[in-house]
Design a protein around this nucleic acid. Structure first.
Length: 799
RNA sequence: GCGGGCGUGGCGGAAUUGGCAGACGCGCCGGAUUUAGGAUCCGGUGGGCAACCUUGCGGGUUCGACCCCCGCCGCCCGUACCA
């Protein structure tokens, strides 16, 4: 048989669809398996090679599980709101709706061409009114629960995209969409109170199975730290400066304080500050710096001493100077710190530059050279003197702080509340009305979806105003509460909104009564296995866990955590070993590969390339190795016999075991290697019987389903190979009668010996002594120790 | 700086988790077939003429170390003046 992929592949794709082969069945008695992959953003560029790898992993697992009798839900959809589409719309003068529909069609065609076994009857589109109705519904529920608030603060702003960004969207000081520098800007912003869920999100990690680095990154992102809040009285006025510290044990070593440039105490007591001009100049200088510059110049400390305000150490009563410096951030803790230069590297650098006293309170290190951040015996610290353990020093200090009423234990998170609004058109309208009398009022549930109005012009307005603000018929409305004239919120939700709950919708995608039928949610949730990219671990994964946990708390979903297991695939790099990019010209288009070699080869190669979780470079020549496998597999029909081929039995059973195990642990590369080995064995044997070839066909089917369907038909198999039962192996038949073991002398391999598998240590020793080439090496030596690992080796330690 | 991961032939990568290092594939070399091949098939392929040497480098534990421990070096990812 020949692998005529241009005919075979579209033919079977059509047959699968007609037979509804990959439809999941709600409420089936069979065990359920919900496999989830990150739905794509349907960009105009079409599918990327990375999508094949990202989806190919669970595609193989899903196909295997179906053959094993599971009721598999393996859905796909489109995360279609977002800026790239909107920007193309502005540039080309086409409505984003039109572009989105085009792109979705393009993606659908491409995904089908690969032969993915998605349940196409459950496709979701986040821009569909029937979908975003429920995105708005969830937002409204959060609004009711007090998790939505509005605040005017310094936020991340992208001047290029003209939008406010969340912390997650501006990692590394760069805009997540256009990768330009983000600036800090004071703006009125909608926030979701995700910090209220910080502990639940942390705790939830104990109950799920995420890859260690995924868990670790989430923990770091949430960044819980325990410490203390301490109030330092001000000498000149009747007020206090509140700070957060994780090292209250070093309170005796405080020699100055630092506040962030934006700290409000400066405005409150401006009249007390004698050098206010100097302070203002410094603040202006800091405001000009981007976040990027501020962190780049990390080593070089700048600042100004505030003349006219002095703090008093609440424990020692000592007077200490206050500085303003941009190494203290307004966005973390209280925007003010107690500086202990002897034991903090940043405070040390600052103290050296500004000539402030450095007072050691922990023994060890050399204060003249560097800050000492290690542990040691407490000195110069009153009631703490002599203590050697950091933990007990902190505890002792906390007791003292509370006793004197000047401080208390506290917790801080690195994670910030989620800046949730975007000043753009192509997103879900935020269902809130601003009423002059009632304030912010939620749009009634029965009025959802609050539809996106048609507009002429999608460009953001002056000063980053949403395009919706120009649509009077949308903006002007009646207050749902008092009926008076009111105005609608005109900002839209960020791209992450729709993707924060899409996995729930797959369980019941057409429901118009609720986001999904509780019975169906109960049947399918949680997702058994979620695979996607590492780049989403501290964005989408955090957001969606938060939304899901909230939905659990209000009784809308049956389980607290949405994903029981999470894995991540490594990048597909260009042939030159670096990330694919248009500018480098190293982009591989999956469509070209399919045109040239067929989808089965593409699917097989992308998983054969290397460790699934590791990045691996594309290789045009290596693809041909997989092309050969498929061709050689197809040609096995030439070797078909009706009699069993006994010499293949052990090899076949081992292959079944290896492939079955490796698919479950995502070791697709070695699973494919095992299939290659077996095919090699068949060619070496020169013949294969029908039953064995059918088994091999089933093993290869998850990877290369089209050629396997063709082979299955050729061999007279019933129905679809994709629906055939997964092969079982017989443990006994994986064992050979004899085995070759290594014979070692003092740990060095000196020869090999074939012995029966069940040979005892005595048998092996006797065999060695009887062996003509091995026995002379023992001549005149005394065996001190003998180690025998059955089936592996025998090591003789001699004197 | 901190957190996580990695380092194995010319290349991508295997190695039952302490038991014959280099499976499988690419590439390369030789041969067959072919008018021809960048098609197909067969054989070979870590280094060294050898004894032997080889999993980034140096120590250690062990009968035995790619695997465990200690100390370096180098890459990648994440995060970043987080108090």
């Amino acid at each position: 048989m020949e692998y005529k992929f241009r005919e075979i592949e579209p033919k079977w794709q059509k047959k699968w669809e007609e037979a509804g082969l990959f439809r999941a069945v709600d409420g089936s008695e069979r065990p359920k398996f919900y496999a989830l992959v990150e739905f794509p953003y349907p960009s105009g560029h079409g599918m990327h090679i990375g999508h094949i790898k990202a989806y190919g992993g669970l595609e193989v697992v899903s196909r295997k599980r179906r053959m094993q009798g599971y009721n598999v839900l393996f859905p796909i959809g489109f995360d279609a709101f977002g800026l790239p589409t909107e920007n193309t719309a502005i540039k080309d003068g086409v409505h984003p709706r039109v572009l989105t529909d085009q792109n979705i069609r393009k993606f659908t065609d491409q995904l089908r061409r690969v032969g993915f076994s998605f349940d196409w009857s459950r496709t979701v589109d986040t821009t569909d009114e029937g979908y975003y109705r429920w995105t708005q519904w969830i937002f409204r529920k959060m609004f009711d629960a007090g998790l939505v608030f509005r605040d005017k603060t310094l936020v991340n702003f992208c001047p290029h995209c003209q939008v406010v960004l969340s912390n997650e969207d501006s990692q590394g000081g760069k805009c997540d969409i256009c990768h330009n520098d983000v600036v800090q800007k004071s703006k009125d912003v909608w926030y979701l109170r995700i910090t209220e869920y910080a502990d639940k999100l942390l705790e939830g990690l104990d109950h799920v199975d995420y890859l260690p680095n995924i868990r670790n990154q989430q923990e770091n992102w949430i960044g819980r730290s325990t410490g203390a809040f301490v109030n330092f009285p001000l000498k000149e006025v009747d007020d206090k400066l509140r700070i957060y510290t994780t090292r209250c044990d070093t309170l005796f070593g405080v020699t100055f304080m630092v506040i962030a440039p934006e700290h409000p105490v400066l405005d409150t007591y401006a009249d007390k500050v004698k050098n206010m001009d100097e302070v203002r100049a410094y603040r202006a200088e800091c405001a000009k710096k981007t976040e990027f510059e501020r962190t780049q110049l990390a080593k070089d400390k700048t600042g100004v001493r505030i003349d006219g305000l002095t703090a008093i150490n609440p424990i020692t009563g000592r007077e200490i100077p206050i500085f303003i410096s941009d190494y203290v951030m307004m966005g973390y803790g209280t925007g003010a710190i107690m500086a202990v230069p002897a034991h903090d590297t940043r405070d040390y650098a600052f103290a050296k530059k500004f000539g402030v006293e450095i007072l050691p309170v922990i023994e060890g290190g050399d204060i003249s050279k560097d800050a000492y951040t290690g542990e040691g015996r407490m000195i110069n610290s009153g009631f703490l003197n002599g203590l050697t353990d950091k933990k007990s020093s902190i505890e002792r200090m906390l007791v003292e702080l509370e006793k004197r009423g000047v401080g208390e234990a506290g917790v801080q998170y690195k994670m910030k509340d989620w800046a949730f609004n975007r000043q753009r058109y192509w997103g879900e309208p935020i269902p809130i009305v601003h009423c002059p009398k009632c304030g912010m009022v939620g749009v009634p549930y029965e009025e959802l979806p609050l539809k996106l109005p048609e507009v002429e012009n999608f460009e953001p307005g002056e000063g980053g105003e949403s395009p919706l603000a120009k649509v009077a018929s949308f903006v002007n409305c009646k207050c749902p509460q008092c009926g008076g004239d009111a105005k609608r919120e005109t900002d839209t939700m960020p791209q992450w909104a729709g993707s924060s709950w899409y996995f729930l919708r797959y369980t019941d995608p057409h429901n118009d009564k609720s986001l999904a039928d509780p019975e169906k949610l109960k049947y399918w949730m949680p997702v058994d296995w979620y695979n996607g990219g590492m780049e989403h671990v501290t964005r989408h994964m955090i957001y969606s866990r938060f939304w899901h946990r909230f939905l659990y708390d209000i009784g809308a979903v049956p389980c607290p955590e949405p994903y029981a297991k999470r894995t991540a695939q490594g990048l597909v790099l260009g042939a030159n070993g670096v990330k694919m990019s248009k500018s480098l010209g190293n982009v591989i288009d999956p469509n070209d590969v399919i045109d040239r070699y067929g989808a089965d080869v593409l699917r097989t190669y992308i998983l054969f390339m290397g460790d699934y979780e590791q990045a691996a470079p594309w290789s045009d020549s290596s693809v041909r190795g997989c092309k050969r496998l498929i061709d050689r597999f197809a040609a096995l029909t030439d070797l078909l016999t009706e009699e069993p081929v006994p010499s293949l039995e052990t090899s076949l059973h081992r292959t079944i075991r290896k492939v079955s195990e490796d698919i479950e642990s995502m070791k697709f590369n070695t699973a494919i290697a095992a299939i290659m080995t077996f095919v090699n064995d068949v060619y070496a044997a020169g013949a294969i019987d029908r039953a064995s070839l059918m088994t091999l066909t089933k093993l290869l089917c998850p990877f290369a389903p089209h050629i396997c369907e063709e082979m299955w038909q050729e061999l007279g198999g019933e129905g679809f190979c994709s629906a055939a039962s997964w092969p079982e192996y017989d443990e006994e038949k994986t064992k050979e009668a004899t085995v070759e073991i290594a014979v070692q002398l003092c740990g060095k391999v000196r020869g090999r010996l074939t012995v029966p598998v069940d040979a005892t240590q005595e048998d092996v020793l006797a065999a060695i002594q009887a062996d003509g080439t091995l026995s002379p090496m023992l001549a005149g030596k005394q065996i001190v120790k003998q180690i025998y690992v059955p089936g592996r080796l025998c090591n003789l330690v001699v004197k």
